[in-house]
Each structure stands twice: as structure tokens, then as C-alpha cells.
Amino acid sequence: MLSVKGLRANVGDKEILKGLDLEVGPGEVHAIMGPNGSGKSTLSHVLSGRDGYSVTAGSATFEGRDLLELEPEERAQLGLFLAFQYPVELPGVNNTYFLKAALNSIRKARGESELDAVSFLRLIKEKLKILHLDDSLLKRAVNAGFSGGEKKRNEIFQMALLEPKLAILDETDSGLDIDALRVVAEGVNALRSPERSMIVVTHYQRLLDYIQPDYVHVLARGRIIRSGGKELALELEQKGYGWIDAELAA
């Protein structure tokens, strides 16, 4: 599904990703853990097509397409979804209008017809329930004045609606209290399926108590230095990230 090989990327003159390899198969959940500054967010951003990064070497293939060639909207239309670490507030942009535009863009790209108003509303209400979100959200502007927890739930709600093939959750746990974290994780778990893959990017092991990954990767200094099962997350939790330096020095 996703194949990243030898990926190198710069921000300005500074190299952040230094030859990163990652293979994600259908239905797999991969956790990427790493300390601050290891390149976690850069990886999420490069894969989703945000400006400000230059890829200097390597490749990223998604569903057989060269991901790095595509515009951000084309990646989304192909089935890639990024849940933002800091969801952006869009004052004045109505949530319903936004969701409809997004869903219809993606449906159109898949060769499906646009949803009529009634089916759209029914679908939305169904998905709101998964995230314990209130109808009133639909009348508000996108993320504007939302609490931190509401913003993160709104991300997962969008994911539920857009039904991506691959979701990247960029530090979705940051800034959430334990109750909000549980709701978000339940939402994510409800969306797990044999066809849907996920990359869960996180600093802490805590999120992985709720979203059980199939694979855990440790990202440090722009490369994946270790991969394993979920027990690797526990090892990290016990040892902290300090041992990485020792590892790298060795």
C-alpha cells in the first residue's frame, strides 16, 4: 500500500529525514515513535504534501502511484488522510459546507456521484455518533473556537466520513486528557478494517495502550533505527529515549 524507500528531505538547508524506509501493508497499523526533533512531523507532512519541504532523495509510492509527484488534494483523493497535530481553525468556513466539499471531491475522484442533501446528512449524523460529537458542530466554523479535544475528535470524525485507505495520525494524543484520548482512540479503533492502514505517530506510549499497533518503529535523527512488535513500545516506555543515543553511538 505504502512503500517509502531511502527518503531524504530538507527544511531549508537542514536535512531532517536521512534515508527513511517504511513498508505499510493493507490493514496494518504502524506506530512511529521518536523523541522531539526526530523527524516525525516532517514525515507526516512530506507524505501528505505540505509545502516547505524538499525531497532530495528516495521515493514514496502509494497505491502504485508516485506520491511525491501529486498535489495534496490528489493524495487525499487517492485515499490518504492526515489527522493534524494542530488542526487549523477556518473562521467563517461552515463545517457542513466544508465536509460536503471534501466528501464530494473525494467521491468524484473515485468516480462516484455526489451525495444528495438527505443522504449526506444521514451519513454525517451516523459518523458524529462514533466520536460522541454533537450536531451543533455542523453549524460552526471549522475548528474555530473548538477546544483541543474537540479539534482532535473533529479530525477523526473527518477521517470516519472520508474513509481513507491510509490514515496518518500525527501526534493525535498531544494535548488530550485521558477521557478525550479514550474517545479519540475508540473512534480510531472503530475505523480499523482489513482494507484501511494507519500510521500512528506519537511521542508517548500512552496512546498505544488504546490503539494497539501491529508494528512499532523508532525514529531517530531522520531514520528508523529499530522496528518491532508492540512490545517495542513498552521497552521504549521503560528505558526512555535516552538509550537511542547509546544505540546510535555504538
Binding site: 488534494e73 493524495r75 492526515l82 488542526p87 466544508f98 471534501a102 473525494i106
Partner: peptide, 13 residues
């Protein structure tokens, strides 16, 4: 930032 957010949801520029 705002533009990217919308585009990341499949909406063209």
C-alpha cells in the same frame, strides 16, 4: 496553513 488543511481533505486549490 489554511489552504493546506483544505487541500489535504481532497479539495482542489
Amino acid at each position: 496553513e489554511m489552504l493546506f488543511y483544505l487541500r489535504s481533505r481532497g479539495i482542489d486549490a
